Lab assay of single mutants.
Amino acid sequence: IGSLMYASIFGNVSAIIQRLYSGTARYHTQMLRVREFIRFHQIPNPLRQRLEEYFQHAWSYTNGIDMNAVLKGFPECLQADICLHLNRSLLQHCKPFRGATKGCLRALAMKFKTTHAPPGDTLVHAGDLLTALYFISRGSIEILRGDVVVAILGKNDIFGEPLNLYARPGKSNGDVRALTYCDLHKIHRDDLLEVLDMYPEFSDHFWSSLEITFNLRDTNMIPGSPGSTELEGGFSRQRKRKLSFRRRTDKDTEQPGEVSALGPGRAGAGPSSRGRPGGPWGESPSSGPSSPESSEDEGPGRSSSPLRLVPFSSPRPPGEPPGGEPLMEDCEKSSDTCNPLSGAFSGVSNIFSFWGDSRGRQYQELPRCPAPTPSLLNIPLSSPGRRPRGDVESRLDALQRQLNRLETRLSADMATVLQLLQRQMTLVPPAYSAVTTPGPGPTSTSPLLPVSPLPTLTLDSLSQVSQFMACEELPPGAPELPQEGPTRRLSLPGQLGALTSQPLHRHGSDPG
C-alpha cells in the first residue's frame, strides 16, 4: 500500500511539474524568437521594450494561443456562430445594431475584428487614413492633437468618421493612444458598406441611429477645401490634362476667341504652333527640309505637354522668318557652300510665315494684346468667377478644330508651292551661260556676264508674291485673308516669265 501511494503521488507530481515546464519551455522559446528578432533588426531601446511588454501581456492574456488560427480551423457556418458569440456584447448593447435580422448580425459579426491594445500603444496616428470604424468594449483611450489631450473615450464609445457622408476615406486629425488595456472591435469601411448593401432595409436605420462619439476626420483635408492638395495627390493619381488660365478682364471677355491653345513656353509662336517648341509643326519652317525628324516628334510632343491658354504674339512682318533660324542665316552668309535649293526654301518659309499670320487673323479676328503681368498667370479653374468647365471645354474643342483646319490648309498650300517650284525647275534647270562666239564683223562684242542661278530668282519672285499679296490685293481696312490656291498659281508664272525669257546656255562643266 505504501509503495502504491508513493507511486501515485510521485507520478502525479511529476506530471504536474512536467506540464509546468512544458508551458515555461514554450514561453521561453517564443521569447527567444522575439529577442532574436530584436537583435537581428537592431531595434532601439524604447521600441524594444514595448515589443517585450506586449509579448508578455499577450502570452498571459491568451496563454500563447493564436485565436485567429484556431477560429480559421472551423467551417464557415461554425465561424459565424463563434463570431456572433464573441461580439454578442457589442451587437446587443450598441444602439445602431438593434433591430437587425439574424442574418445581418451574422454577416456583421464575420466582418468585425477584435484588437487588444496595451497602455501607451498608439492605435491611430495623425494623418493616417481612416479605413475603419472603432467600437470600444473595454478600457479607455485618449485622443491628442500635438501634445494636447482633446478627448478621453471609454466603454461603448465610437470613434472614426461617418462613412455615409464621404465617398473616400479621410485623414485623422489626431493621435489615438490607449490609456489602459483596451479591447476594441473594428470593422473596415469596405466590409461595412458591403453588408449594408446586402441589407438595404437595415442601412437607413443604421446610419440614422449611429452616433460617433469623436469624429477623427480632418475637415481641412476634404477635397475642394484650401488644404486638400495632399489628399488630392493621394487619391487622384490618374489626373486628366491640367489647364491653367490667364485672368480675363471685362474688356477681354467681350471679345470671342481671344486665346489660343499652345504648349508651355510657346507664347511667341504662331497660331498653328503645336507639339515641339520653336515654330509651326514643332520646328522652324525654314529647317523643315533639312530635319525630317521633326514630323516624327510632333505626335509625342503634342500628347505629353499640358495645355496652356495664352494670348497671341505680336504680328510678324511678311518677309521675316518666324524666328530662331540660325540654319538659314548661316546659309545666307556662306552662300557659296550651301545647297542652291536652300534659297528657294527660304522664300517658301517667308510665304508660310505670311500665310500663317494672315490665317491666324482670319480665324481669330481680334487685335493683338500685350501679355498680362506675371502675377495674373496660372489662375486655377476652381477659383470664384471662372467660367463653367463645359464652356471652357467647348472653347478648347473649337480652337482645336480651327487649328486642324489651319494645319490642313497650310499643308495644301505648301504642296502647291512645291509643285510650282518643281515645275519651274523642270522647265528651266539651273545653269550658267557659256561665252558666246564673236560675230564675223570687226565690231565684236565682249563675252556675256554669267546669269544668276535660278534659286536666287525664285527667292526674289516669291518675296514679290508675298509683298504683292500682303499690300496690293487686300483693300484698305479689310481683314488680311489668305489668297486662294488658283490665284497664287496664276501669279507665280507671271512673275517668273520675264526672268526666264532670256536664252540660257548650259555650261560645259555643268553635270545637269
Rank of each mutant, 00 (worst) to 15 (best):
I187K: 01
F468C: 08
R387H: 15
P292Y: 15
S342M: 11
S272F: 14
P306W: 15
G270F: 05
I187G: 02
A269L: 08
N215M: 02
D128Y: 01
E201S: 06
G288C: 12
S353N: 08
D175V: 07
M221I: 06
A470C: 14
C182M: 01
S137M: 05
G257M: 09
L327Y: 05
S501G: 11
P162D: 06
L376Q: 11
H188D: 11
V148C: 09
S452L: 11
S225R: 09
P315I: 13
T416Q: 06
S236P: 10
T229F: 10
L153E: 01
A151Y: 01
R401N: 15
V428Y: 09
Q483I: 13
A470M: 09
K251C: 11
L130Y: 01
N378I: 01
V392E: 13
E298T: 05
L376M: 09
G160C: 01
T437M: 11
L492R: 12
S433D: 09
V149D: 01
G508H: 08
A269P: 09
S208W: 03
I212Y: 03
L496K: 09
L165V: 06
L210A: 07
R389S: 15
P326N: 04
T500F: 09
P453N: 08
S260V: 07
D191T: 03
H205W: 07
S228E: 12
G299S: 13
S225K: 09
M425L: 10
P223F: 05
L192I: 07
R274D: 15
G224C: 08
R266Y: 11
P271V: 13
S290V: 06
S411L: 07
S244R: 12
Y181K: 03
N215P: 01
P384H: 06
F468M: 07
R248P: 08
T437S: 10
P372G: 10
R138L: 04
D157C: 08
S260P: 11
P264M: 09
L474K: 07
H188G: 09
P482G: 12
F214L: 05
F468K: 11
E365P: 09
S446K: 06
Y134I: 03
G299P: 04
P374I: 06
S501K: 08
E407N: 08
F352E: 04
P486L: 15
I136R: 02
S291M: 13
T443V: 10
G224D: 12
S444N: 13
S284T: 15
D330N: 08
E480W: 08
T253Y: 10
P447F: 08
L496V: 09
G268S: 10
V259G: 11
G263R: 11
S287G: 14
L496R: 10
R386D: 13
S294T: 04
G494A: 07
N220S: 11
S172K: 01
R361H: 15
L196D: 01
Q467W: 03
L341V: 09
S509L: 08
A344G: 11
R405T: 04
E230V: 08
G265P: 10
S203L: 04
L366E: 09
L462P: 10
F202H: 11
P476E: 05
T229L: 08
L377G: 11
H505Q: 10
P429M: 06
D330M: 06
L262F: 08
P388M: 11
G477D: 08
D190N: 12
Q419R: 11
P264K: 14
I222D: 12
L410S: 06
R246S: 10
P450Q: 06
L499R: 12
T249I: 12
P453W: 04
R241Y: 10
G233L: 10
F312A: 04
E332I: 09
D250M: 06
S461W: 04
G160F: 01
M198Y: 10
P475A: 13
D250W: 05
R189P: 03
D297Y: 08
R405K: 10
H505I: 13
A178D: 01
G439N: 15
L474V: 10
P447Q: 09
T229P: 07
A498D: 14
K186A: 13
S236V: 12
S304G: 13
P493E: 06
S463C: 08
G233V: 10
G224K: 09
K171I: 11
S375V: 08
P476N: 08
P223G: 11
S305Y: 15
V435Q: 13
L216D: 01
E298L: 06
P226L: 10
E161I: 01
V148M: 12
S452Q: 12
P450A: 09
P453M: 09
L420H: 11
S463I: 12
R386N: 15
Y363L: 10
G160V: 02
P315Y: 15
E211F: 06
P388I: 10
E254Y: 07
R308I: 07
G234E: 11
E473I: 14
L184I: 09
E325R: 07
N215Q: 01
K171A: 04
V176C: 11
R401T: 05
L153V: 02
T456V: 09
G270Y: 15
N156Q: 09
A478C: 10
L499Q: 05
P285C: 06
L496T: 11
L474C: 11
A267S: 10
K333S: 10
S334V: 10
G441T: 06
L420M: 06
Q495L: 08
E332K: 12
D157N: 04
L216K: 01
F345H: 11
P384I: 15
Y181R: 04
E298W: 15
F354M: 05
P511Q: 09
